[in-house]
Design a protein around this nucleic acid. Structure first.
Length: 259
DNA sequence: ATGGTAGACCTTCTA
Protein backbone atom coordinates (compact mmCIF):
# COMPACT_ATOMS: atom_id res chain seq x y z
CA UNK A 1 0.00 0.00 0.00
CA UNK A 2 1.36 3.39 -1.03
CA UNK A 3 0.26 6.43 0.99
CA UNK A 4 0.98 9.96 -0.20
CA UNK A 5 0.99 13.37 1.42
CA UNK A 6 0.94 16.59 -0.58
CA UNK A 7 0.34 20.22 0.30
CA UNK A 8 -1.19 21.31 -3.02
CA UNK A 9 -1.63 25.04 -2.27
CA UNK A 10 -5.21 25.27 -3.61
CA UNK A 11 -6.74 22.15 -5.17
CA UNK A 12 -8.72 24.17 -7.70
CA UNK A 13 -5.79 26.29 -8.89
CA UNK A 14 -3.68 23.09 -9.01
CA UNK A 15 -6.22 20.62 -10.41
CA UNK A 16 -4.57 19.86 -13.75
CA UNK A 17 -1.14 19.46 -12.14
CA UNK A 18 -2.46 17.29 -9.29
CA UNK A 19 -4.58 15.06 -11.53
CA UNK A 20 -1.63 14.43 -13.85
CA UNK A 21 0.38 13.17 -10.88
CA UNK A 22 -2.46 10.97 -9.59
CA UNK A 23 -2.97 9.45 -13.03
CA UNK A 24 0.73 8.63 -13.27
CA UNK A 25 1.37 7.46 -9.69
CA UNK A 26 -1.99 6.04 -8.56
CA UNK A 27 -1.27 6.11 -4.82
CA UNK A 28 -3.64 3.89 -2.82
CA UNK A 29 -4.24 6.63 -0.25
CA UNK A 30 -3.45 10.34 -0.24
CA UNK A 31 -3.66 13.16 2.29
CA UNK A 32 -3.94 16.62 0.76
CA UNK A 33 -3.37 19.89 2.58
CA UNK A 34 -4.16 23.53 1.84
CA UNK A 35 -7.01 22.73 -0.50
CA UNK A 36 -8.25 26.30 0.16
CA UNK A 37 -11.92 25.60 -0.52
CA UNK A 38 -15.11 24.62 1.26
CA UNK A 39 -16.33 21.01 1.01
CA UNK A 40 -18.80 21.74 -1.82
CA UNK A 41 -16.07 23.25 -4.00
CA UNK A 42 -13.69 20.30 -3.78
CA UNK A 43 -13.43 18.77 -7.29
CA UNK A 44 -14.32 15.23 -6.17
CA UNK A 45 -15.58 13.96 -9.54
CA UNK A 46 -12.27 13.75 -11.42
CA UNK A 47 -10.74 11.85 -8.49
CA UNK A 48 -13.74 9.52 -8.28
CA UNK A 49 -13.26 8.84 -11.99
CA UNK A 50 -9.73 7.69 -11.13
CA UNK A 51 -11.23 5.29 -8.59
CA UNK A 52 -10.88 7.27 -5.36
CA UNK A 53 -13.20 7.70 -2.43
CA UNK A 54 -13.07 11.26 -1.13
CA UNK A 55 -13.45 12.81 2.34
CA UNK A 56 -13.05 16.55 2.76
CA UNK A 57 -12.63 18.90 5.71
CA UNK A 58 -12.67 22.21 3.88
CA UNK A 59 -12.51 25.90 4.73
CA UNK A 60 -12.97 29.10 2.78
CA UNK A 61 -9.75 30.74 1.50
CA UNK A 62 -7.32 29.15 3.97
CA UNK A 63 -6.25 25.70 5.12
CA UNK A 64 -8.50 22.73 4.30
CA UNK A 65 -7.53 19.05 4.18
CA UNK A 66 -8.77 15.97 2.32
CA UNK A 67 -8.27 12.23 2.20
CA UNK A 68 -8.46 10.14 -0.96
CA UNK A 69 -8.42 6.35 -1.02
CA UNK A 70 -9.01 3.53 -3.47
CA UNK A 71 -10.78 1.68 -0.65
CA UNK A 72 -13.69 3.09 1.39
CA UNK A 73 -12.89 5.71 4.06
CA UNK A 74 -14.41 4.67 7.36
CA UNK A 75 -14.60 6.11 10.86
CA UNK A 76 -13.91 9.59 9.43
CA UNK A 77 -12.93 12.31 11.90
CA UNK A 78 -12.81 15.96 10.86
CA UNK A 79 -10.72 18.13 13.15
CA UNK A 80 -8.85 17.29 16.34
CA UNK A 81 -10.98 16.78 19.45
CA UNK A 82 -13.11 19.87 20.02
CA UNK A 83 -11.65 23.14 21.19
CA UNK A 84 -14.15 26.02 21.35
CA UNK A 85 -13.38 28.83 18.91
CA UNK A 86 -10.94 26.88 16.72
CA UNK A 87 -12.36 27.00 13.19
CA UNK A 88 -9.18 26.06 11.27
CA UNK A 89 -9.66 22.98 9.07
CA UNK A 90 -6.31 21.26 9.61
CA UNK A 91 -6.96 17.61 10.46
CA UNK A 92 -8.82 14.71 8.87
CA UNK A 93 -8.60 11.05 9.81
CA UNK A 94 -10.04 7.80 8.51
CA UNK A 95 -9.52 4.05 8.45
CA UNK A 96 -8.99 2.50 5.03
CA UNK A 97 -7.35 -0.41 3.23
CA UNK A 98 -7.81 -4.13 2.74
CA UNK A 99 -7.38 -7.15 5.01
CA UNK A 100 -5.17 -5.16 7.39
CA UNK A 101 -6.55 -1.62 7.43
CA UNK A 102 -4.53 1.43 8.32
CA UNK A 103 -5.66 4.53 10.19
CA UNK A 104 -4.50 7.66 8.37
CA UNK A 105 -4.41 11.14 9.87
CA UNK A 106 -3.88 14.01 7.43
CA UNK A 107 -2.20 16.98 9.09
CA UNK A 108 -1.78 20.64 8.18
CA UNK A 109 0.04 22.01 11.17
CA UNK A 110 -0.05 25.80 11.66
CA UNK A 111 2.86 27.72 10.17
CA UNK A 112 3.24 29.87 13.28
CA UNK A 113 4.95 32.92 11.79
CA UNK A 114 5.80 35.45 12.94
CA UNK A 115 7.27 34.22 16.22
CA UNK A 116 6.38 36.18 19.32
CA UNK A 117 2.74 36.46 18.24
CA UNK A 118 -0.45 34.54 18.97
CA UNK A 119 0.15 32.65 15.73
CA UNK A 120 3.21 30.98 17.20
CA UNK A 121 1.32 30.19 20.40
CA UNK A 122 -1.45 28.68 18.29
CA UNK A 123 1.08 26.46 16.53
CA UNK A 124 2.47 25.12 19.80
CA UNK A 125 -1.03 24.61 21.23
CA UNK A 126 -2.07 22.75 18.09
CA UNK A 127 1.01 20.55 18.38
CA UNK A 128 0.04 19.77 21.97
CA UNK A 129 -3.51 18.85 20.95
CA UNK A 130 -2.16 16.60 18.21
CA UNK A 131 0.08 14.89 20.74
CA UNK A 132 -2.86 14.30 23.08
CA UNK A 133 -4.81 12.77 20.22
CA UNK A 134 -1.84 10.63 19.16
CA UNK A 135 -1.65 9.16 22.66
CA UNK A 136 -5.21 7.88 22.27
CA UNK A 137 -4.56 6.56 18.77
CA UNK A 138 -1.39 4.73 19.81
CA UNK A 139 -3.37 2.96 22.54
CA UNK A 140 -5.34 1.24 19.75
CA UNK A 141 -2.14 -0.65 18.81
CA UNK A 142 -2.93 -0.68 15.10
CA UNK A 143 -1.18 0.47 11.91
CA UNK A 144 -1.34 4.26 12.07
CA UNK A 145 0.16 6.90 9.80
CA UNK A 146 0.06 10.58 10.78
CA UNK A 147 1.31 12.45 7.73
CA UNK A 148 1.18 15.86 6.23
CA UNK A 149 2.66 19.34 6.30
CA UNK A 150 4.03 19.59 9.84
CA UNK A 151 5.62 22.99 9.23
CA UNK A 152 8.67 21.88 11.21
CA UNK A 153 12.29 21.59 10.09
CA UNK A 154 13.44 18.81 12.44
CA UNK A 155 17.16 19.52 12.25
CA UNK A 156 19.94 21.42 10.42
CA UNK A 157 20.26 18.65 7.81
CA UNK A 158 16.67 19.33 6.81
CA UNK A 159 17.41 22.77 5.36
CA UNK A 160 19.76 23.85 2.61
CA UNK A 161 20.64 26.97 4.56
CA UNK A 162 19.64 26.35 8.20
CA UNK A 163 21.09 29.68 9.32
CA UNK A 164 18.49 31.43 7.19
CA UNK A 165 15.66 29.84 9.21
CA UNK A 166 16.86 30.72 12.71
CA UNK A 167 14.20 33.41 13.19
CA UNK A 168 11.44 31.37 11.56
CA UNK A 169 8.66 29.53 13.39
CA UNK A 170 9.48 26.36 11.42
CA UNK A 171 12.93 26.09 13.02
CA UNK A 172 12.36 27.44 16.55
CA UNK A 173 13.65 25.31 19.41
CA UNK A 174 10.05 25.12 20.74
CA UNK A 175 8.75 23.85 17.39
CA UNK A 176 11.49 21.26 17.12
CA UNK A 177 10.92 20.19 20.73
CA UNK A 178 7.18 19.78 20.05
CA UNK A 179 8.04 17.60 17.05
CA UNK A 180 10.33 15.45 19.18
CA UNK A 181 7.73 15.23 21.95
CA UNK A 182 5.26 13.84 19.43
CA UNK A 183 7.78 11.42 17.96
CA UNK A 184 8.95 10.31 21.39
CA UNK A 185 5.52 8.87 22.14
CA UNK A 186 6.82 5.96 20.09
CA UNK A 187 6.28 7.13 16.52
CA UNK A 188 8.80 6.59 13.74
CA UNK A 189 9.73 9.24 11.17
CA UNK A 190 9.47 7.22 7.94
CA UNK A 191 12.15 9.28 6.21
CA UNK A 192 14.69 8.81 8.99
CA UNK A 193 13.92 5.11 9.06
CA UNK A 194 14.51 4.20 5.41
CA UNK A 195 16.59 7.07 3.99
CA UNK A 196 17.66 9.83 6.34
CA UNK A 197 20.17 11.36 3.95
CA UNK A 198 20.56 15.15 4.21
CA UNK A 199 18.92 17.23 1.50
CA UNK A 200 15.67 15.29 1.25
CA UNK A 201 13.64 18.46 0.89
CA UNK A 202 9.89 18.66 0.32
CA UNK A 203 9.34 22.45 0.03
CA UNK A 204 10.96 25.22 -1.96
CA UNK A 205 9.56 28.75 -1.67
CA UNK A 206 8.19 30.45 -4.77
CA UNK A 207 10.29 33.49 -3.93
CA UNK A 208 13.89 34.47 -4.64
CA UNK A 209 14.58 31.52 -6.93
CA UNK A 210 14.52 29.05 -4.04
CA UNK A 211 13.93 26.04 -6.32
CA UNK A 212 16.63 27.01 -8.81
CA UNK A 213 19.10 27.47 -5.95
CA UNK A 214 17.84 24.37 -4.09
CA UNK A 215 17.04 26.44 -1.02
CA UNK A 216 14.71 23.74 0.24
CA UNK A 217 13.50 22.38 3.56
CA UNK A 218 12.01 19.08 4.75
CA UNK A 219 8.71 19.86 6.46
CA UNK A 220 6.33 17.22 5.05
CA UNK A 221 6.60 14.15 7.24
CA UNK A 222 5.04 10.76 7.91
CA UNK A 223 5.00 9.44 11.48
CA UNK A 224 4.25 5.74 11.96
CA UNK A 225 2.96 3.68 14.86
CA UNK A 226 5.07 0.59 15.67
CA UNK A 227 2.56 -1.58 13.78
CA UNK A 228 3.03 0.57 10.67
CA UNK A 229 6.79 0.99 11.09
CA UNK A 230 7.14 -2.82 11.15
CA UNK A 231 5.90 -2.98 7.55
CA UNK A 232 7.51 0.19 6.15
CA UNK A 233 9.14 -0.52 2.79
CA UNK A 234 10.18 2.82 1.31
CA UNK A 235 9.82 6.58 1.25
CA UNK A 236 10.01 8.51 -2.01
CA UNK A 237 10.07 12.30 -2.25
CA UNK A 238 8.70 13.24 -5.67
CA UNK A 239 11.13 16.10 -6.13
CA UNK A 240 10.62 16.35 -9.90
CA UNK A 241 7.07 17.57 -9.37
CA UNK A 242 8.49 20.94 -8.26
CA UNK A 243 9.69 21.39 -11.87
CA UNK A 244 6.31 20.81 -13.54
CA UNK A 245 3.91 23.39 -14.98
CA UNK A 246 2.26 25.56 -12.29
CA UNK A 247 3.66 23.57 -9.37
CA UNK A 248 2.78 23.68 -5.69
CA UNK A 249 5.60 24.92 -3.49
CA UNK A 250 5.49 21.46 -1.81
CA UNK A 251 6.08 18.11 -3.54
CA UNK A 252 4.39 14.77 -2.82
CA UNK A 253 5.97 12.31 -0.40
CA UNK A 254 4.95 8.66 -0.79
CA UNK A 255 5.51 5.92 1.76
CA UNK A 256 5.02 2.24 0.99
CA UNK A 257 3.75 -0.22 3.57
CA UNK A 258 3.66 -4.02 3.09
CA UNK A 259 -0.08 -4.15 3.74
C1' DA B 1 20.19 44.76 1.13
C1' DT B 2 14.54 43.01 3.69
C1' DG B 3 13.25 41.83 -1.58
C1' DG B 4 11.24 38.11 -4.08
C1' DT B 5 6.00 34.84 -5.71
C1' DA B 6 1.55 32.56 -5.38
C1' DG B 7 -3.48 32.05 -4.14
C1' DA B 8 -7.91 33.73 -2.57
C1' DC B 9 -10.42 37.73 -3.03
C1' DC B 10 -11.82 43.02 -2.40
C1' DT B 11 -7.50 45.30 -0.22
C1' DT B 12 -5.09 42.63 2.59
C1' DC B 13 -3.96 38.01 4.68
C1' DT B 14 -1.43 33.84 4.62
C1' DA B 15 2.33 31.24 3.37
Amino acid sequence: MRIATWNVNSINARLENVLAWFEAEQPDVAALQEIKCIDENFPAEPFETLGYNVAVHGQKTYNGVALLSKTPLEDVRRGLPEVPGDDHARYIEAVTGGATPVRVGGIYLPNGNPIGTEKFTYKLNWFSRLRDHAINLLALEEPLVLLGDYNVIPGPDDADKPEGWLGDALFQPESRAAWRALKNLGLTDAYEQVDGSPGGFTFWDYQAGAWQRNHGIRIDHALLSPQAADVLQSVIIHRDVRDTEKPSDHVPVVIELAL
